[in-house]
Amino acid sequence: MREPVDLRRQRILAAVQARGTARVRDLAAELQVSVVTIRRDVEELTREGRLRRGHGVVRSTLPAQELPERVGGDGDTVAVVVPERHSYLYEALHGARTVLDAAGVRVALHIAPQVPGAERPQVERALADGARGVLLAPRWRSPATEEADYRWLAELDVPTVLMERRPPRGSALHAMDSVCSDHWYGAHLAVEHLVGLGHRRLVFATRDDSPTARTLRAALAEIAGAHPLVEEWVWTLSASRGGLDREPTEVTDLAAVLRKAGATAAVLHGDVDALMLVQQLAGNGVRVPEDCSVVAYDDVVAGLGSPPLTAVSPPKGEVGRVAAELLLRRIDDPGAGGARAVQRIELLPALTVRGSTRPA
Results as ranks from 00 to 15, higher is better:
Arg2Gln: 12
Arg2Ser: 13
Pro4Gly: 08
Arg11Met: 10
Ile12Pro: 00
Thr21Asn: 10
Val24Gly: 01
Glu30Asp: 03
Leu31Phe: 06
Thr37Ser: 14
Ile38Asp: 07
Gly49Met: 09
Arg52Val: 04
Val57Ile: 10
Thr61Ser: 13
Thr61Cys: 13
Gln65Lys: 04
Gln65Cys: 11
Glu84Pro: 01
Tyr90Pro: 00
His94Pro: 05
Gly95Asn: 04
Asp101Asn: 02
Ala102His: 04
Ala112Gly: 02
Gln114Tyr: 07
Glu124Ala: 14
Arg125Trp: 10
Ala126Arg: 08
Ala131His: 07
Val134Asp: 05
Ala137Phe: 12
Pro143Arg: 08
Ala144Trp: 08
Tyr150Ile: 12
Asp157Gly: 03
Leu162Cys: 03
Val179Gln: 02
Cys180His: 08
His183Trp: 11
Gly196Thr: 12
Arg200Pro: 00
Val203Tyr: 05
Ala205Asp: 06
Asp209Arg: 10
Ser210Met: 13
Leu216Tyr: 15
Glu222Asn: 11
Ala224Trp: 08
Val230Asp: 02
Val234Ser: 14
Leu237Trp: 06
Ser238Thr: 11
Gly242Asn: 11
Ala255Thr: 01
Ala256Trp: 04
Ala266Ile: 02
Val272Ser: 13
Leu275Val: 03
Val278Ile: 14
Gln279Phe: 06
Gln279Asp: 05
Arg287Thr: 00
Asp291Trp: 00
Val294Met: 08
Tyr297Asp: 07
Asp298Ala: 15
Asp299Met: 07
Val300Phe: 10
Ala302Met: 01
Ser306Trp: 08
Ala311Leu: 09
Pro315Lys: 01
Glu318Lys: 15
Val322Gly: 03
Glu325Ser: 10
Arg330Met: 12
Gly337Ile: 05
Arg344Trp: 14
Arg354Ile: 04
Ser356Arg: 00
Ser356Asn: 14
Arg358Pro: 00
